[in-house]
Design a protein around this nucleic acid. Sequence first.
DNA 1: GCTGGATATATAGTTGACACATATATCGCC
DNA 2: GGCGATATATGTGTCAACTATATATCCAGC
Lengths: 118, 118
Amino acid sequence: MTERFGRDLIRGSLDLMVLSVLAGGSQYGYSIQKRIRAASGDRVSLPAGTLYPLLHKLEEDKLIRSRWDNEGGRRRKWYDLTAKGKRKLTEQAKEWTSYAECLGRLLGPVLGGVEARG
Amino acid sequence: MTERFGRDLIRGSLDLMVLSVLAGGSQYGYSIQKRIRAASGDRVSLPAGTLYPLLHKLEEDKLIRSRWDNEGGRRRKWYDLTAKGKRKLTEQAKEWTSYAECLGRLLGPVLGGVEARG
DNA sequence: GCTGGATATATAGTTGACACATATATCGCC
DNA sequence: GGCGATATATGTGTCAACTATATATCCAGC
């Protein structure tokens, strides 16, 4: 059980995942990785080679900002949401929810009674 | 309102959408395109250059089968789910639902009270 | 009977988000 | 002082999906 989600399934919501983790407060790359992993029950595990370039892109787009800090005795790059990032997060979260509902309707008949009484 | 969903959001669920449309019975390419468009309230509109190669791939994978037919006085290529396709559809639908729940939990705090009373 | 738009299918070529492989450096443990 | 976990970085590859283009039929308007 609990296999990994397919790559293409996840694709398109990685930004959203990272931004939503940062909505809870400052995080550094490695901790974001672990949080997403934990929050998904080990089913989403984004590799470092995916995460760090993504963080760089988000920062370039001014959705997050970074600062190097030695908090905890170790040099880490801490990230925070900017105001723009918060707006983006809300927007993307709504879009995703909307898409999920949309696809859910399409799948309704397929899943049969399973979901009907949710 | 009702803008198109981002490309990357949709990515990874196109197979699923096509298969779920075919779960309702025989369809040909163009009708699948229109159905998905309608079912999504014009928010998912897959171009012909995406749909037809996708259908070829699904057929190659034995998830669907095709036959040319002149029903309605016009030559069209009709598609049907195979038994394998039905299994795949169920499996992918469950995976998608599971992923949606997973991401939903992550987004819960972000969306705040908005969804709470949905 | 011709022109244009909707219907209907097909494919070569391009794009870009994400993964893989690899590199670097620090920390704690034995 | 070596090894595994922590921590960040980047060049290259992959492949799903898009763009552009081609072909052919049907029907409405002229």
